[in-house]
């Protein structure tokens, strides 16, 4: 008979890893499927200073390596496979991947977010030739250059600040929405001599020749800025087709709808972390992952009832 896992976790960010730690530590057979690097989007954080227990802070990569070690220690089985489908088979769930399929009594979705694109002229044309979606990955290529950071979220603020370490000048462009004054790094960003914040206007075009040379605005006193790089750091959740096809309820923004126990509308299926839009922080994702695993364990204990 084919193996039926107690818990299948989809996603290897902080939520997925924490769910794995909780489930495996309680002796449940736990399979974690991932199609990227273990650690997910948290790997892009150049410094995490607000994760409790680490007063000096650490990089996202360091913190995720610790999560990974802890999950491995409890016996989580990691497999690098892309999930292409999820179906309910009554007493268990079937997770299809490009390499085959797996069966699980419960499934925890920790699929994270997909980045939103600006969808303006030049964005796709100059992708990899000045347009980047990952400041920590590609920032070193822009040493002593001029860059623009597009986005109004916390990540955009933190990454604009991070890019001042290497770039000659950083234009921070939150768009018409502006920044939330609650971001702790905002005063530091505003006072950094390398940073110029352009608020109130949206970028309308990215132009260049072989590489990016400038960005344009509409309806702004600043019509054009000469830049070498454009970092697009818009946060957005988009429920993948897989979840939609599986019949998992999501809200208009694409966030998977969960209750306080991280239950989705499907029995035995839970969602945790950024895909359920509950905080955008490593600590909240980890908390979600723990709650999802606890709910899954309760479901298992009760023989498949909520």
């Amino acid at each position: 008979m084919e193996k039926v896992w107690d818990v299948i976790v989809i996603g290897a960010g902080p939520a997925g890893l924490t769910a794995g730690i909780y489930a495996a530590r309680h002796g449940h057979s736990t399979l974690l499927l991932h199609n990227g690097k273990i650690g997910g989007r948290a790997l892009e954080a150049h410094m995490i200073e607000n994760y409790p227990g680490f007063p000096q802070g650490m990089t996202g990569a360091e913190l995720m390596e610790l999560f990974h070690q802890q999950a491995s220690r409890f016996g989580v089985e990691f497999r690098h496979e892309t999930v292409i489908g999820l179906a309910d088979a009554g007493d268990h769930r079937i997770v299809s991947t490009r390499g085959g399929y797996h069966q699980g009594k419960t499934v925890i979705l920790a699929t994270g977010i997909q980045r939103k694109q600006l969808s303006i002229p030049g964005e796709m044309e100059f992708k990899g030739r000045g347009v980047s979606y990952c400041a920590i990955c590609d920032g070193p290529f822009f040493k002593d250059k001029i860059v623009a950071v597009i986005g109004s979220g916390h990540e955009a603020v933190a990454d604009a600040l991070h890019l001042t370490d290497t770039a000659k000048k950083v234009y921070a462009i939150p768009g018409a929405k502006g920044y939330s004054e609650s971001y702790a790094e905002l005063p530091v960003l505003r006072s950094n001599p390398k940073v110029e914040i352009i608020e109130g206007h949206d970028i309308s075009e990215i132009s260049g020749n072989e590489f990016v040379t400038n960005i344009k605005f509409t309806g702004s006193s600043v019509e054009k800025l000469d830049v070498d790089g454009v970092f697009i750091l818009l946060e957005h959740v988009s429920t993948s087709n897989i979840l939609v096809e599986a019949g998992i309820d999501a809200d208009e923004g694409g966030c998977v709808i969960v209750d306080r126990g991280q239950h989705t509308n499907l029995p035995g299926v839970y969602a945790a972390g950024d895909c359920s839009c509950t905080g955008w922080q490593v600590v909240t994702a980890a908390g979600d992952g723990a709650k999802a695993a606890l709910s899954a364990m309760k479901y298992l204990k009760q023989g498949g009832t909520r």
């Binding site: 992708k127 990899g128 030739r129 000045g130 980047s132 990952c134 990955c137 590609d138 070193p140 290529f141 822009f142 040493k143 072989e210 590489f211 790089g229």
Partner: peptide, 25 residues
């Protein structure tokens, strides 16, 4: 990073074949 910049690379992952960047991102 020096090698990447010498090839005018601006993003990873990337593949260069015989010293010419062919695939980026």
């Amino acid at each position: 990073i020096k090698r990447g910049m010498a090839l005018s690379l601006m993003a990873v992952p990337a593949v260069a074949i015989n010293g010419v960047v062919k695939l980026t991102g």
